[in-house]
Amino acid sequence: MTPVLETRAITVRYRRGPDVLTDVSVTVPEGHGLAVVGESGAGKTTLTRILLGLLRPLSGAVLLDGAAIDGRLSALRRAVQPVFQDCYSSLDPRQRVDRIVAEPLRSLGLVTGPDRRAELARRVAEALSCVGLPEDAARRYPHEFSGGQRQRIAIARAIAGGHRVLIADEPFSALDAVTTARLVDLLSGLRERRGLTVILVTHDLAVAAALCARTAVLERGRIVEHGETAAVLGRPRHPHTRKLVASVPRLPS
């Protein structure tokens, strides 16, 4: 099966700086999750910017459905949506939630025709219900919601346009453990019910293990291990992966 997203031996550099990513190849099969794990500065966020088409690699290729994304940015935008780390700054405070959630639908022109407004409202309501927010959330503003609920709004925005891939960069790092667990459940539900592909950047290996079938481990811009999560995190071969696994805080049994 053709992976929905793929990078082939990409190298990325900002200006004249050193390589931020070196020879990075990852494949994302449709409907499977990919976790990108590693320490701060390993290049995780840079990889998401490449996959979102916000940055171009110096060399190597990025493929969507098996074809290079060069010149196909609009196809990429229709397939892939981001969810960011800081749910306090990624939602426009002056816009109502319905407008925020409908933004990708509008900007990509996904809803046309005479009944545009009704159709937009219907899609927004469906997305909000999918992420477990009440119907009246549509008419409220972001500041009226908690951090976990805001991240639900961001997820609703990402799925409202029927996008196939959601790229979430540390979406839980500002949230407490119970809220995180609820959002992990939400995302795995969306994966099962809608076949959503989730690419998750995280430094929390427990979340990676709970949500993603595949894991790629980055260390200083290089992939040191990449494969089934159960193998990569369960039987880590590379010393860096071992160090990451060993550092996860464990409950005394």
């Binding site: 453990a177 119970v178 667990a181 427990a206 709970a210 995190l233 039987r235 996860v248 409950l251």
Partner: peptide
């Protein structure tokens, strides 16, 4: 929650 989240990782070892 803590047992469930950590458990996903621990079951893999």
């Amino acid at each position: 929650t803590a047992r469930r989240l950590r458990g996903a990782l621990e079951r893999m070892s």
